[in-house]
Amino acid sequence: MIRYLTLPVHRSESIGGNYCLLAVRDAGLAALCRPGMFFELKSGAAGQDRRLFKPVSIYKVQSDEIAFLIKVLGPGTQALQVLEPGAPLKLLGPLGNAFQLVKDSRVLLVSGGVGYPPLAYLRDKLDASNEFTFLHGGNCRDDVFPCDDVWTVDGSSGRQGLVTEGAVQLIRDKGINVVYSCGPLPMLKALAQIVGPILHYVSLEAYMACGVGVCHGCAVPVGEGYQRVCKEGPVFDASLIRWGEL
């Protein structure tokens, strides 16, 4: 059941150069959230009513609070960034499928840039029977968030290089048998190659309009045809994605 609500922003923070955190409180909505799901978000401020919603993954759910970590990319996310506590936030969701939660596995989480939030939420909900390592990469220190091992392209934080280099080592050394990932397309493509036959769940990003499966705008090449990131996704089995077409 999809819900459409306008809620007052409960918390609003600027993070680093290019990110912001927004949180709302609603116990009913929080109870529907699962790692991997997303909301379509939009500022309730005047002047936004003829703009599209922006799809944003759930970052954290703690009791009745739902938090979003948002990268500011264009007019829609700029309008979200300036929302102060108490300002109206429009939410449509929760939308999409969720990550399959495994047990008794050696798990690797790999995120890049704004791919971090869904994996941070997943990490919080992973069963204690799993051993896991969380790698995160970004262009520079502004893209870095708490995890086990940080990589930056410019070396300004953590290890210098691409996060996929870290994944190669870990898969080799730790006998990883489940991988979860989310991040920019070049990272995901490289990772899919590295991971090979290991079970690999990828959360994909796509430009989106409706968010509920009716417009077919967010289609990605999966299986024999196209599947919708908003409906069949955003989490896909990496082995079914036709990476060459992305």
Partner: peptide, 11 residues
């Protein structure tokens, strides 16, 4: 019809 390849949308 499978439709066109992505990306299919832009605001």
């Amino acid at each position: 019809r499978t439709g066109n390849p992505p990306p299919r949308l832009y605001e």
